[in-house]
């Protein structure tokens, strides 16, 4: 737990040393890292590879944005609606998709996410489809704090990140988390040990979906935009990539994965137009030389105490 606090202290400290642009970048990174953590819970700990997590991110985002825009909800209830929408969607998806496993699970989640994407477009009258809509500045203040300022944004992102980060860290140390890992390692044996694997997996999916929903709602809240591009396949593959890069099944891996990927694109695009080429080569090299992700490999090679 101390290590987790240390990570948060570093993030807090970064605010005071980083130049303005990178403060903004880290606000974004922390929001995306929440998403990655939600994904990691299902993929890294439970061993279920979903290709449709963007639907939970989008459910949180639209649950927040639509209630603000259409019903004039204030931030707190709208945010809560977003989380509930994501958790409810995860419950339905889980109920259906968890009948499958392995690649079939990947495909079913992928197709459900595609369905959600099309539904968003279909109700374009309310969602403005692919264009999306803006959550106005006036609608983005909480308890009298205008969350559109750079400082407020950073701390809002940090607080939400900290809550999710510590909660996930706690969760995976509890018996619940250990059982998820048992399912990942060998579902058959976990079942013989008397665990209700189906129920545990459903719970993992709901929590994972809800955390992803928090990320989506936070994005809408802090960056003022809600759009269908966040529900596309691309945004389902991102968290998988981040988690694999950082290290699946580690609590800090998702954050590291997001930071790595963000700055890989950010820095390389400053030098060349062909930054995707660089990103591609970097990914290939990473799989060759850091097979367990950055954190996973470091933990194995040098620092066994990494969380």
């Amino acid at each position: 737990m101390t290590l987790h606090i240390a990570v948060l202290v570093v993030l807090l400290g970064l605010f005071f040393v980083l130049p303005a642009y990178h403060v903004g970048a880290f606000s974004r990174i922390m929001v995306l890292a929440i998403y990655a953590m939600g994904y990691n819970l299902l993929f890294g700990y439970t061993g279920l590879l979903s290709l449709g997590h963007a639907m939970f991110f989008a459910a949180g985002m639209y649950g927040f944005g639509l209630t603000v825009n259409l019903f004039g909800f204030s931030v707190a209830p709208a945010f809560l609606t977003g989380i509930i929408a994501a958790a409810a969607l995860a419950l339905i998806v889980g109920y259906l998709a968890l009948r499958t496993a392995g690649v079939a699970f990947m495909i079913v989640t992928l197709m459900f996410a595609q369905t959600v994407y099309l539904v968003i477009l279909y109700f374009g009258e309310y969602t403005r489809g692919d264009e999306g809509f803006v959550v106005q500045q006036a609608q983005r203040s909480f308890a009298g704090i205008d969350l559109t300022g750079e400082t407020e944004r950073y701390f809002a992102a940090l607080i939400l990140f900290a809550i999710c980060f510590l909660a996930v860290a706690k969760l995976v140390q509890m018996p619940f988390g250990k059982r998820l890992v048992a399912i990942r390692e060998n579902e058959e044996r976990a079942r013989m040990l008397g665990y209700d694997a189906a129920k545990l997996k459903l719970h993992a999916l709901i929590i994972s979906g809800a955390v992803s929903g928090i990320a989506g709602a936070t994005y809408g809240l802090l960056f003022g935009y809600v759009g269908a591009s966040f529900s596309t396949v691309q945004y389902s593959i991102f968290p998988l990539l981040w988690v694999l890069l950082g290290g699946a099944g580690t609590t800090i891996g998702p954050l590291i994965g997001v930071i790595f990927m963000f700055y890989l694109i950010d820095i390389s695009s400053g030098y060349t137009d062909a930054y995707l080429l660089i990103a591609g080569v970097a990914l290939v090299l990473l799989t060759l030389f850091a097979p367990l992700g950055l954190v996973g490999t470091l933990r194995k090679r040098a620092f066994p105490w990494l969380p």
Partner: peptide, 11 residues
Amino acid sequence: FSHVVIGSAPR
């Protein structure tokens, strides 16, 4: 592209 405009304008 409109979605990029709308996503960027708040910033």
